[in-house]
Design a protein around this nucleic acid. Structure first.
Lengths: 145, 145
DNA sequence: TAGTATTTTGATAACGATTATCAATTTCAT
DNA sequence: ATGAAATTGATAATCGTTATCAAAATACTA
């Protein structure tokens, strides 16, 4: 149930920052790792609260920030202005294909696009850091309706 | 000074929605069109206020929404959570290359990437609507420092 | 294991961007 | 000019998120 490897990543990160291990942080990480979809801070808060009602949402926000900094979570910002988080540890880079009808999301990677993006960076003499690509459309299911 | 073509686009849009022409809306459009960079609602508010101090920021927000709906402006949402607006009328589609050091922004288009994006839509049986691509990096000037 | 310095915590207030409310003003077809 | 309807600015409200702060938890040390 508990993912030991991810937990040790967090522990290691805390150590380098002279921060302390805490029960709450471990609980929140555990809940996060056991859900396999993008979560908003609020969704994670509700789930964590079920396991431990004493958890406050400020702690969830703070922990999500730690998870992002330690490389365990990635922040996703779509057009609706709500930040979502997804698993990042040992997950490959990918972009998103989003259905504007039902909200369904597909993770996509196109190596050819990635290469061309690198070329764009070089062409404008930028040192690449990261990118973000979202494709919005209507999926088959929604088109039928 | 005043862009008649864009103004008539707005007028036309208002007509279809049974909305009224107003002096404030025209003033705001005029200020917007005479600035050639991405603007936040607040920036546009300050500029409009110089010309006509009686303009309130609620009206600027409301007008920006109308401009977006009528196709004169495009909303840009980057990672900082502030919505920016750019000219849209008779402007070609483009993506953005952003320097995380100084905030400089370059408009880019890569036809090859556009084609591959279409292919990705088809591959997952999505009907394409729009996409968003932002490349974040460090520009030469910032790298030197 | 008790003492203690430091960090973490939850509740709450504060924040920044945006939107809703509402009475007063403007628009426009008559 | 009249009057119905839309628009306006000031302000309050909203939403997601972050800051504050006293109390609790943690991890050293002796």
């Amino acid at each position: 149930m508990t993912k030991v490897e991810e937990l040790s990543v967090l522990e290691g990160f805390l150590k380098t920052k002279a921060l302390k291990h805490s029960r709450k942080r471990e609980e929140i990480l555990d809940v996060f790792l056991n859900v396999d979809r993008h979560l908003t801070a609020d969704e994670l808060y509700r789930l964590a609260k079920k396991k431990d009602p004493s958890i406050g949402f400020a702690t969830v926000y703070r922990t999500l920030k730690l998870l992002s900094e330690s490389g365990l979570a990635a922040e996703l910002k779509f057009d609706d202005g709500v930040t979502r988080y997804e698993h990042m540890y040992a997950h490959k880079h990918h972009d998103h294909l989003v259905c504007t009808g039902c909200g369904r999301m597909v993770e996509v990677v196109d190596p050819a696009i990635e290469k061309l993006q690198e070329r764009l960076f070089r062409k404008h003499a930028f040192h690449p850091q990261r990118h973000r690509m979202e494709l919005y459309g209507i999926c088959v299911r929604c088109k039928r309706r």
